[in-house]
Amino acid sequence: MKQSIFKLDISQMSDTDIFGLRMAINNAFSEYEEFIGKPYLRFESHDHFIQNLSDEDNHFLVIKRLDKFIGGVCFRTPSPDSDTLYFGMLWVAPNERSKGLASLLIQIMEKEAKQRNKKGLLIKLFKIPKLIHYYQELGFNFIDGNKAGPMVKYF
């Protein structure tokens, strides 16, 4: 089955797509409940989600197959003078993991960063060992060796 990757434009989204995207993101993040010790929803309310989608500094890239959102990422420049492109909320639907979608999204983010004349990518993670290990395998390192802080990959 063919999938499509595109930047979101909230003005072009139906209510059904907005609801489906919010549910897909929350489902992808639900596994962190065990790690943080309480239920985890990335977007607890529809209004919070719409606010994030509408923020002109946030840019969303999503992967959709048929009528289902299966992965995505939100990115922005952390500050005007930053030499990195920040991405957060990278997610892949649980049943779509281990198929290279997260790596594909990161590759696209690298191209986006280079187009914006940035020197690297920046991410802030939960302190979840498997996520840290995954990003280290992709060339990300903790800034200043701080194992609790953000990770960066320069190119």
Results as ranks from 00 to 15, higher is better:
M1K: 12
M1H: 14
M1G: 12
M1T: 12
Q3S: 08
Q3R: 06
Q3C: 08
S4C: 12
I5D: 05
L8E: 04
D9Q: 14
S11H: 15
Q12C: 07
M13S: 01
M13T: 00
S14A: 09
D15A: 05
D15E: 13
T16V: 06
D17R: 01
D17S: 11
F19I: 02
F19W: 09
A24H: 01
A24R: 00
N26T: 03
N27P: 00
N27Y: 03
A28G: 07
F29R: 02
E31C: 07
E34C: 13
F35D: 11
F35T: 13
K38A: 15
P39D: 14
L41M: 14
F43C: 03
F43A: 06
F43K: 05
E44S: 13
S45N: 10
H46N: 15
H48D: 15
H48L: 15
F49I: 01
F49D: 02
I50M: 10
I50D: 13
Q51T: 14
Q51W: 03
N52F: 05
L53S: 10
S54I: 00
D55F: 02
E56C: 06
E56K: 05
N58S: 05
N58L: 01
N58E: 11
H59R: 08
H59K: 10
F60C: 03
L61W: 12
I63Q: 07
I63N: 00
I63A: 07
I63P: 00
I63E: 10
K64W: 09
K64I: 10
R65Q: 14
R65W: 01
K68W: 06
G72P: 01
C74Q: 14
C74G: 05
T77E: 08
S79E: 09
D81Q: 08
T84V: 11
L85K: 04
L85A: 04
F87T: 03
G88T: 01
G88A: 03
L90H: 01
A93N: 07
A93F: 04
A93Y: 02
A93H: 10
P94G: 02
E96W: 12
E96R: 05
E96D: 08
R97Y: 02
R97S: 02
S98E: 13
S98L: 00
L101P: 03
L101F: 09
L101G: 00
L101D: 02
S103T: 13
L104P: 09
I106C: 01
I106Q: 03
I106K: 04
I108M: 14
M109A: 10
K111Y: 12
K111F: 09
E112Y: 04
A113G: 12
A113M: 02
Q115S: 06
Q115T: 08
N117E: 13
K119I: 03
L121M: 08
L121G: 04
L122I: 02
L122H: 13
I123F: 07
L125G: 00
F126T: 15
P129G: 06
K130W: 13
I132W: 06
I132V: 15
Y134S: 03
Y135A: 03
Q136F: 11
Q136Y: 09
L138Q: 13
L138S: 07
L138R: 12
G139S: 00
G139L: 07
G139K: 08
F140C: 00
N141K: 15
I143S: 05
D144G: 00
D144F: 06
G145F: 10
K147S: 15
M151W: 02
Y154S: 10
Y154R: 14
F155N: 08
